[in-house]
Write a protein that binds this DNA or RNA. Sequence first.
DNA 1: TTGAAAGCGCTAACAA
DNA 2: TTGTTAGCGCTTTCAA
Lengths: 343, 343
Amino acid sequence: MRTPGMTLKELAEMLSLSPTTVSRALNGYPEVNAETRARIEAAAREHGYQPNTMARKLATGKAMAVGHVIPLGEHQMINPIFAEFMTGASEVYSKVGYETILTVVPEKGEEDAYRDLARRHSVDGVIVHAPRTGDPRIKLLTELGLPFVLHGRPVGDDGPSVCLDIKNARAFRQATQFLIDLGHRRIALLNGLEQISFALRRRAGYEQAMERGGIATDPSLSAHQEMTETNGYNTTMAWMQRAERPTAILTSSIISAIGVSRAVRDAGLELGHDVSLITHDDDLSFLRNEGDPPRFTTTFSSISAAGHRCAEMVLDLIAGKPVESEVWDCQLVEGRSTGPAPA
Amino acid sequence: MRTPGMTLKELAEMLSLSPTTVSRALNGYPEVNAETRARIEAAAREHGYQPNTMARKLATGKAMAVGHVIPLGEHQMINPIFAEFMTGASEVYSKVGYETILTVVPEKGEEDAYRDLARRHSVDGVIVHAPRTGDPRIKLLTELGLPFVLHGRPVGDDGPSVCLDIKNARAFRQATQFLIDLGHRRIALLNGLEQISFALRRRAGYEQAMERGGIATDPSLSAHQEMTETNGYNTTMAWMQRAERPTAILTSSIISAIGVSRAVRDAGLELGHDVSLITHDDDLSFLRNEGDPPRFTTTFSSISAAGHRCAEMVLDLIAGKPVESEVWDCQLVEGRSTGPAPA
DNA sequence: TTGAAAGCGCTAACAA
DNA sequence: TTGTTAGCGCTTTCAA
C-alpha cells in the first residue's frame, strides 16, 4: 500500500553509476567528482529519493535518534515544563536528521526502559531529566555505555557525567536574601520533591540565606512535594491559617505559585500586601501574565533553551566531541508587588 | 564503547542450532519443537539476548514506530494538553514494543515532515492532531499511504479517514442552553483558533443554542484565538470594560479559563456572581482545583484517555484491522458557583 | 522439525 | 574518481 520510494540501487541504475558513488555523493564525501555529484543530486531531488533510515541505521550501526525516558506517576506533573523542554530539543535533533524517541514508563520500569533502548540500539544517546539523590540512572547508563546528558546536576558522586543546570542555590539564596532585606522573617519555602537535585540545591540556598540573616529556619515552613497547583494551594492554605503565618513564600515553580496565589486570595489575604511571593519562573508563557504573581526569573527562564542546549550537548557527545558541563547564571527580577514585610 | 550485545548468530552457535530456528522459536512460530524452544528461550534469557531492532526493521520492512508531528509556533500552547495526550499514547506503543517518534517542526514544514517520515520509512503510522479547515495533511497522508488517525473530526470532505472526537457541538449547545436557562442573554464565547475543527464545532453548538433561545449572537462576544492564559485575560478584560458586559463566558480550554478568572477578579468583579464561567475541561489536573472555576466537563475530560485510544486505533490500522471512527459523548457537570444571571 | 541461502537497502573496506 | 565486494543482524522462502 505504501508508496515504494526509490532505492539507492535504482537511482544508481538510472544514472549508470554504482550505488557506492551515489551514496558517497549524497553523503557529502569529498572524493566525488563535482560534476557527477551535481548530476546525482539533481536526480535525487527530481525523483524524491530519500534513503531508507532502517537500512542506513543497520549499516552504520547508528540509531540516528536520541531518547527521552519519562517516568509516569509521581512526577507526571513535570509535563508542561517537559513539553517546553522537548520542543527545544526536538528542533535540534531534526535539524541534523536525528529522531526523537519518547518512552513513557511507569516509575518502576525506568531502568528497564534504558536497558532496552541500549540493547536494541534504538538510540545513540539519551537525556536524563531531573537527577535525584541516589539516582540509579547515571551508573546504569555509564555501564551501558550509552552517552547521556543530565538536565540538572547529579546529587552525589555517581561518576563523571555531563550536565546542564542553573545556579539553583545561588538563585534561592538571592531571593531569600532579598526578602530578608525587605524585613521578612517568616519565609516559607514551597519546594519540589526532596530527592530531586533542583530542590536540594534550592533548599540549600534558602537555608544559607536564612542562616546568614540569623533567622532560625522553621522546618514546618518548608514543604517538599510535587509541584502541582493543588499541592501549592493546600500547603499555602494551611500556612495561612496558622496564628503566625509566613509573610513571604518562595516557590520552585510557577505551577505551584498559581496555587499559592489562589490560596492567599481564598484566605482573604492580599498577595504583595499581606504575603509576598517569589517564584522560580520556568517561563511557561501560557501560564503567566506580566507581573502576576511577582516572581523570580532566572536566565534559565526559557526551558526550551535548556532543551535546545542539552540536545546539542548529547549530539556532541555522540559524535565523540569533548563536552563540558554548563551551569547557567541567574537573574533576579523584581515583581510588581513584592513589598516590605507587613508590620 | 557500547556493550556489544549478543547477536542471533552467536546465540545460535552456542546452542548448535541455526539462526533460523532460534529466530523462529523466539518469534513464537509454531513449527518449533517444544523442547528446542524451551532450550532457546532459556539461553536467550540467560544471556540477555535482545534482537537488534534495526536489523529486524530492515528485514521486516516495519518501522515499529508511530509518529507524532507537532507544529511549532502559532499552536505551541497546545503543549500541556499535548503532553497528557502523549502520555496515554506512548504507554500503548511501549506495551506492544513500538516506539514513539516525536517530530517538532516549524508550522510551514509540517507537510515535509510527513513526507520525510514516510519516505524514510521511519514510522508505520501517525496521529494527526487538531484537524483544521482545508487541512492538507489528510490528503497528503492518504497519498503517501501512511496509516493515520485524526484526533478530532475532519472539517470538510477530505476523503475517508479514521478519527476520535468528542461531541463538541452538543457539549457547547448544552452549556449555552444551560446558561440561557439560568437567565443569561449576553453570553460570550472564548474559543480556539477558528480553523480548528474543535473550535468550529463548538461555535456551531453555541450559535445553535443562542438561536433556539431567540438571542441574537453578538459577533464581538465571540473570540477565536490561541487558547493561552494571556489571551483569555486580555479578551475578558476588554469585555468586562464594556458598558454592556457579558454575564457569562464559555471557554474552550481550562488554560484560557484561568485568564478569564483573573481578569474578572482584576476588573473588580466576582466570578459566579457578576459573571458566570463554564469551560471545557481538558482535565489538566495540575492546573485546577475542585470547583474553581466552575466548569463544564466532558467524558473527553481525560485527554490521556484519548491518547490511549488513538494509539490503539492507529496500531489496529497498521495491523490491517478494520477501525471505526469514534465520537465520545459528553457530560455536563455543574460547577460550584455557576448561578443565575445578575439582574 | 530444522537448516541453507537469499535478501532487506545501505555503508565502507579494498581495489582498480 | 569510481566500482567491487562484503557485510550490518535479522527474517523468510525453499529444501531437506
